[in-house]
Design a protein around this nucleic acid. Sequence first.
DNA 1: GGTATGACAATGA
DNA 2: GTCATTGCCATAC
Length: 108
Amino acid sequence: MATHLNSFDAIYQVVQLIPQGKVTSYGAIAAYLGMKGGARMVGWAMNASHTLENVPAHRVVNRNGILTGKNFFGGNRMQELLEEEGIQVKEDKIVGFQQHFWDPSIEL
DNA sequence: GGTATGACAATGA
DNA sequence: GTCATTGCCATAC
């Protein structure tokens, strides 16, 4: 149902819908939007959403559970945010990633 | 309108 | 199991 929204808006919506303490992967969002191979584009949208404060991009990590965009948050800002939500982060990687994984294609 | 880039993902060796 | 290469979509120049 994201066909009416632009790719960026659609991604923003999904990211904002991520529950606190949960994380998802770029591919999951892309797949939910129908852009299975457009995972890179999701990261691109995140870059644009970085200017916004309503988009918890810190809950979006790659399929490996690594905080790829941590560098874009300005240091360990991303890791601290995740830890505050109850997510353990070790070496820029989420501990029990599958445990905190939130798939929009299933939850939504 | 074509080329280059991007916070990825999947496959092959 | 890890490393390297290719593919995908959309945006930016």
